[in-house]
Simulated assay, not measured.
Amino acid sequence: MVVFIMICLPYVLTWMISYNDREKFIAQRASGDIITVDTGDGVREIAFEDYTAGVLAMQMDPKSSPEALKAQAVIVRTNLAEGFERQEAYVPGEPYMTVAQMEEKGISEQILAAAESTKDEILCYGDRPIMASFHAISSGSTRNASEALKSDEYPYLVQVDSSQDVRAADYLKRVELTPAQIVEKCRTEYPQLSVAQSGDSAERLQIKILSRDSSDYVLSIQVGDTVMPGEQFRKLLDLPSSCFTMEAGNGAVAIITKGLGHGLGMSQYGAEQMAEGGSTYSEILAAYFPGTVLVKKAEQF
């Protein structure tokens, strides 16, 4: 019996330490800012930093480099702060994991560490939290909000070189659709869309890219008699990106995309590459959001 206890004691102590650390983290978080969130099944109250960690767990691969995870943690917290400043009765509804769910998946250690080491830090431009946009993979450079959103309200969302993204496994994708499928998908948003002719080519289908931004993303495209934004066309056809070219033939239209996501703000793949190259999370954020500064949330609000 004594031998059994001696053998098991180290494991029992390890479990107790782990459990105590978890309880300490929860207690520490519970003493912080409490916010109301929309879970999809109703609303509940949760500590601000718990929610930050929970959203982070949903938005980025927990196996990412620690500095890339920290950068994403700041982005999550910044977007929450921006939402609360912009809207008095703001109730965030981002999907998130509880600490218990993270533990079940074996990802709590790295996620909680990223949230804890950046606690209360947000990105500001001037004296206000920014709209911290992010995406998975850029086309090779991020986008100017002045072009993509036709707004000068986001001077920190500018074209930034992210040429390392071209090495990503999901950088290039090819989607093939028939002309009928394209029309059908577009008509879910534009039921009055009219096509004069049918055929197996983009020309006969009357698909024409009208404009692109400086990062090569499609800004506007014409399908039949209807002109729509490139991002909307992308969503209607469920394309990985609005940076695309088209090839027609053999009864189908092939759409070749570059990148994954809308292309604004931080590229998560680019952030990972910078982190692996030795960049800190603050350097990553400074690169993707020029002109912004890191501040403590408590100092700002």
Rank of each mutant, 00 (worst) to 15 (best):
E184H: 05
I122V: 14
V76Y: 04
M266P: 04
W15L: 10
P240E: 08
G140Q: 09
G249K: 06
A27S: 14
E116C: 03
Q101F: 01
E283A: 15
S151M: 01
T36L: 13
D41T: 08
L294F: 09
E276L: 13
V293L: 04
Q197K: 13
S151V: 00
K63T: 13
Y11N: 11
S211T: 15
K150F: 04
A168G: 05
A271N: 02
S279G: 00
G32Y: 08
D216Q: 12
V166W: 03
S65Q: 15
R174Q: 15
G199V: 02
V195S: 11
A148F: 13
A252P: 08
E184Q: 11
Q28E: 13
I182Q: 05
Y288H: 03
P240M: 02
K296V: 01
P66D: 10
Q232C: 09
R22V: 09
M274Y: 08
D41V: 04
P155W: 02
G249S: 12
Q28M: 11
A27H: 11
W15S: 13
I130E: 06
K235I: 04
G54R: 08
V253D: 01
L237S: 11
E67T: 06
A196Y: 04
V76E: 08
I256G: 04
V74K: 06
G230F: 04
Q87I: 11
G42V: 07
T78I: 13
A71D: 01
A47G: 14
E45W: 06
P10T: 12
R77T: 06
T280E: 00
G106I: 12
E45G: 09
A53R: 06
D213T: 03
S65I: 06
V253G: 09
D165H: 08
Y217E: 07
R167H: 11
M274V: 05
Q197S: 10
M266W: 07
V2F: 14
S163F: 07
V218C: 09
L177K: 10
E153M: 05
G263I: 06
G83R: 02
I137C: 07
P155G: 00
